[in-house]
Amino acid sequence: MNRAMGFVAGVALMLGASNVQAADISAGEAMYAQACAQCHGRTGRGMASFPSVSGQDAEYIEARLIQYREGEQVGPNSALMIPVAADLSDENITDLSAFIAKTFQ
């Protein structure tokens, strides 16, 4: 599964690089606190059934969020992430990915 993830992330890297530069990190921070921290933790370390989002680059996060937004099954608990991602705009995804990648190392 990791190998497939790497491939997807690579594609997104090529397509998405310019978006990342335009990211509004503080908007991402506010949104993370409000819509993501309850599952992934305040510091992104993950907990309980919720995976860590730390230690990833923005392209990886972005690619994942796009997959979930499209309703793709990734891991066994995608059903919990898909409805969250369904509401995200491209801009939200850019901001969140930049914030997560920068802050949660």
């Binding site: 059934s49 891991g75 066994p76 608990n77 059903a79 919990l80």
Partner: peptide, 10 residues
């Protein structure tokens, strides 16, 4: 084993 449920993992 995983099943087709929310929190469906093992």
């Amino acid at each position: 084993e995983a099943s087709d449920q929310p929190f469906g993992g093992p």
